[in-house]
Design a protein around this nucleic acid. Structure first.
Length: 407
RNA sequence: CGGGGCGUGGCGCAGCCCGGUAGCGCACCUGCUUUGGGAGCAGGGGGUCGCCAGUUCAAAUCUGGCCGCCCCGACCA
């Protein structure tokens, strides 16, 4: 939580990148501190201070540390979930004997995040590399996953850094290799934060509230019994309980509250994003059926009470798939290829991802940012070699990058 | 820090221009009727109108000062 200021100033690039957004403790215990304490913006320096004690031989490598921690960055403007002063994140740190091994780890982790985003959150992302300007201060390079929100803006949803030997040199972390020589370690760090949850919310939700992908829903199924009078209540509720007798209690909930009408309950669970709502009333009991409603499409299905759990699980799984596909289509439909800067400047306002040629210069990148408030989000891993001319300056470019307005 | 906006029952707002008994929706309380998409009707409780000063017979309303919050720009995962 509190990092001695001197830790942070050891790595020049790193401190330069973070200094403006650090909160600093100057007083504690009723008096001024001899050394000021930075409220951690990330734990790199703390980890490295420990690495020095823990790493001496190649046999100590590779080393991997993972922690969930809250961090603090004093941004000029905050935005719920996406940019909060304090946020919770997962941060991983590794140290390796070779450059190649560190590179492999950084590359591997961004794909772990990508898989999680797509398989669990049903949120398609574009994995790629950040430009020099956008990379993590102190890293050799930064990988990222970029997602498109429903308004067409890009959201960096996870990052992975190849730190090279920068921190090893700053913190003097060396190991002895098999040839008895001392070498600086090669390192990575990577993380995702509560921002990712914000991304999930913004990727799927609609005017009726949250839409949570089934894989991540704390409550996948809610059963709303419908009755009129005590006789029906007893009958319907009894049937609902009987139907779900062998179900996992974490899988469903029967909303048997008496003070609310069914209509109220429908809306109550809808706004909370519960993936499947099952309605069961007297008519359904007569017909040995229930009505199941998908949160993402609102589609209603009549299901037999026989083998209900399996039918619902199938529905959940096609909903998970459907949500990913819908989001993929949205991203695809709003990804444009543009070669004329004036055209770009007009259309960037509408949102979306723009595949543009870029010569690689920071000047062009900055000019574009000033002209349009958009940035180069990433150089996608899957960018095919394609010769063209930089959208901004016209110089030769070898592949297209993704530009967009970002959060 | 620059530009714009807003502070009125618990929440969301109208009233302010043109000064004269502070109002609406939601929520809350009581009763009856309701229950397959956020219930209906009737009755009821609750407000130093952000703060301070000024003008006036009279200020939520006009004037001045202060305080707080939100949005847009410069920063950023």
């Amino acid at each position: 939580m509190f990092i001695p200021e001197s830790f942070l100033t050891k790595e020049a690039e790193h401190v330069e990148g973070f200094a403006p957004e650090c909160a600093v403790v100057t007083h504690a215990g009723g008096k001024e501190l001899e050394e000021r304490l930075v409220v951690r913006p990330t734990s790199e320096t703390i980890i490295w201070d420990k690495y020095r004690d823990w790493i001496s031989s190649y046999r100590d490598l590779p080393i991997l540390l993972n922690q969930w921690a809250n961090v603090c960055r004093w941004e000029m403007r905050t935005r719920l979930f996406l940019r909060t002063t304090e946020f919770l994140w997962q941060e991983g740190h590794t140290a390796h004997a070779t450059h190649e091994e560190a590179e492999e780890e950084a590359y591997r982790m961004i794909h772990v995040y990508r898989d999680f985003a797509e398989k669990y959150m049903a949120m398609p992302v574009i994995p790629g590399r950040k430009t020099e300007q956008e990379k993590f201060a102190g890293a050799l390079h930064t990988y990222c996953i970029e997602a498109m929100m429903q308004d067409g803006k890009a959201l960096q949803s996870g990052t992975s850094h190849h730190l090279g030997q920068n921190f090893a040199k700053a913190f003097d972390v060396k190991f002895q290799n098999q040839d008895k020589e001392l070498e600086y370690v090669h390192a990575t760090s990577w993380g995702v934060s509560t921002r990712l949850i914000g991304g999930m919310v913004m990727c799927h939700s609609d005017d009726n509230g949250l839409v949570i992908p089934p894989e991540l829903a704390p409550l996948p199924v809610v059963i709303v019994p419908i009755w009129r009078g005590e006789d029906e209540q007893e009958r319907v509720l009894g049937r609902a309980r009987e139907l779900t007798r062998d179900w996992d209690p974490l899988f469903y909930k029967i909303d048997d509250r008496e003070q609310y009408k069914p209509g109220f309950k429908f809306n109550h669970w809808e706004v909370r994003g519960v993936p499947i709502r099952v309605e069961i009333g007297p008519r359904d009991c007569d017909n040995n059926q229930v009505i199941a409603v998908r949160r993402d499409t609102g589609e209603k299905a009549t299901l037999s009470m026989d083998g209900l759990e399996e039918q619902i699980r199938n529905l959940l799984s096609s909903m998970q798939q459907g949500m990913l596909e819908a989001a993929q289509k949205r991203m695809h439909d709003r990804t444009y290829t543009v070669d004329d800067y004036a055209d770009y400047q007009r259309r960037i306002e509408e949102g979306g991802f723009f595949r543009i040629h870029w010569c690689g210069s920071g000047d062009c990148e900055r000019k574009m940012q000033e002209d349009t408030r958009s940035t180069i989000r990433c150089i996608p891993f899957n960018a095919e070699p394609e010769s063209g001319q930089c959208l901004i300056c016209g110089n030769p470019s070898e592949r297209r990058v993704i530009a967009a307005q970002g959060y």
